[in-house]
Design a protein around this nucleic acid. Sequence first.
DNA 1: CGGAATCCTGCCTGATACTG
DNA 2: CAGTATCAGGCAGGATTCCG
Lengths: 134, 134
Amino acid sequence: MPTMTAAQRRAAEKADYDAFLAQCPSRQLLDRLSDKWVTLAMVALDAGPQRYSQLSRTIAGVSQKMLTQTLRTLERDGLVTRTVTPSVPVTVTYELTDLGRSLQGVVELLKDWAESHMDAVLSARQEYDAALAY
Amino acid sequence: MPTMTAAQRRAAEKADYDAFLAQCPSRQLLDRLSDKWVTLAMVALDAGPQRYSQLSRTIAGVSQKMLTQTLRTLERDGLVTRTVTPSVPVTVTYELTDLGRSLQGVVELLKDWAESHMDAVLSARQEYDAALAY
DNA sequence: CGGAATCCTGCCTGATACTG
DNA sequence: CAGTATCAGGCAGGATTCCG
């Protein structure tokens, strides 16, 4: 682990995290969580433990690079577990941790909001675009 | 019209088989909401109607370009209102709409999660990094 | 003050090839 | 199957300048 700068140490000792501060760790965490692949992966994993190939099928449009990268950071942050079964061919299963499940609930709300307010957003866009057409 | 991106091509090919994420309209909306500037702007606006300059101060690290761009799309999607007071110099105030407020609650949870689980994530990272050091 | 327009760079993303 | 490695490009996003 790299050494903290004096400024970072002072900030960490200040107890409360504030995501509005650019240098605050929680801000960087929020930035990472506010990523579409993270969101989609978390939502997909709500269906239970899944294999890599199934996730790539569920999350249509994700490249293998981004899926791997996303799952790695989620694993590193303690949100998912990665289990390798040394069969031939190898089987890798991803599963939400307790920490991940606590976040999943929030992300799920985001997905639910998107689905239930689609119409309102679409009509707002039409109205906005119509007003610009002058 | 520009060529399709690889993601769009892949998504289009899988469209008919995966109703969950492939081309569901809410997928695009969810992608849009899963943006760090959107998240931060929505959270910031919870404090009430605010002027452009105040928002830029609250959301540390945001460039003028990204703030404007983010607020524009939020306005277009009917999540915020933009009010111009034709004084000199001009005053512009942003405020959440009812639709925006319904989303704000969810996004706020995301920020709260990030701040309250920061320690857990940090220790998970240390553990992960330590395990890799062999 | 609150932008718009422009330029420009970095890195994020995707494609391809290879591996255990 | 589940990745890693590498390379190329496109666009997100920062910096700067100018304007009502």
